[in-house]
Design a protein around this nucleic acid. Sequence first.
DNA 1: TAGCCGTGGGA
DNA 2: TTCCCAAGGCT
Length: 351
Amino acid sequence: MRDSGEFDVSSALLDWYDRHAREMPWRVAPADRAAGVMPDPYRIWLSEVMLQQTTVAAVRDYFVRFTTRWPTVQALAAAPDDQVMGEWAGLGYYARARNLLKCAQVVTEQHGGTFPDTYDALLNLPGIGPYTAAAISAIAFDRPETVLDGNVERVMARLFDIHDPLPGSKPQLKKHAAALTPAARPGDYAQAVMDLGATICTPKSPACGICPVQAPCAARAAGTQSDLPRKTPKKPKPMRYGHVYIAQSDNGAFLMERRPDKGLLGGMLGWPGSEWSDGPAEAPPFPCEWQVLPGEVRHTFTHFHLILRIWTTTLPVGWSHDDLIVMEKHAFRPSDLPTVMRKAYDLWRST
DNA sequence: TAGCCGTGGGA
DNA sequence: TTCCCAAGGCT
């Protein structure tokens, strides 16, 4: 950072935030916050878990649905697993939803329904790691904790023109971020840095011309802002193949499965199917006249691409099968499905 | 500790 | 079309 003794980065960011804070359903606007309004820790916690590796645009509607259905942590703690998983369907990283329910139950049963306010206590809760513990403590309780997410990493790497690649440079970036964290309004400051990273100090084509901290930015001076932060290269994603089987009874019931809690799409509803590999297809779950649908489903997960063929059949009323769920027509909600299973359903329905 | 774990939007 | 990556956590 340039002229570090003459430019107050924290004050500049807070001033910018006061004028440009984005509206969000969980956020207390800076003017209201200045008037003494405190956020609801339940809503801050819920939003922060939803925002893990997920954009604000994707989270917004999910947050509204969750808080409408479960307005308090006690209400969420009392919710059945399948309803929570169904509401989370489509958001991804489904371990978050399982840990969300666990955390709500721990807070309700062991903390009297009140979220702890310290970093260390929050860190002990399921689904809350270093970032989220700091974010809840700062935003919900205005404690001087330093958040370090992808935005803050990028902003710090550029402000101080740090070329060491992530994730190795994380401690160094954290040190700079901590040094800038103000004693006053740490909650608004945390949101200010993240808003800056999301709207101005963006990964590609940062808008340095309108940046409130362009003056002290070392990368801006060196012209390296578009190359920072450096990251270690990622491995290419392999292709996998598989089959799914959609069987419906004459009365409209589907045969479905609840996936095991651990692993990919853990705890989610889905169609029975083969393993996903480059090997040969497995037989359908029961002998029947199966018909393959034209076309295929393509989907990309975090670490592989997938191509699925869809098979279908009609079953007599009353069919059942070990390990499979008979989902009656009135109980089936396509929105309960994770996206890859939803794609298979959409292809089936369109033919 | 490095691999696993989703999804949708933007370039 | 393909790649990147977003307010990470768990094991």
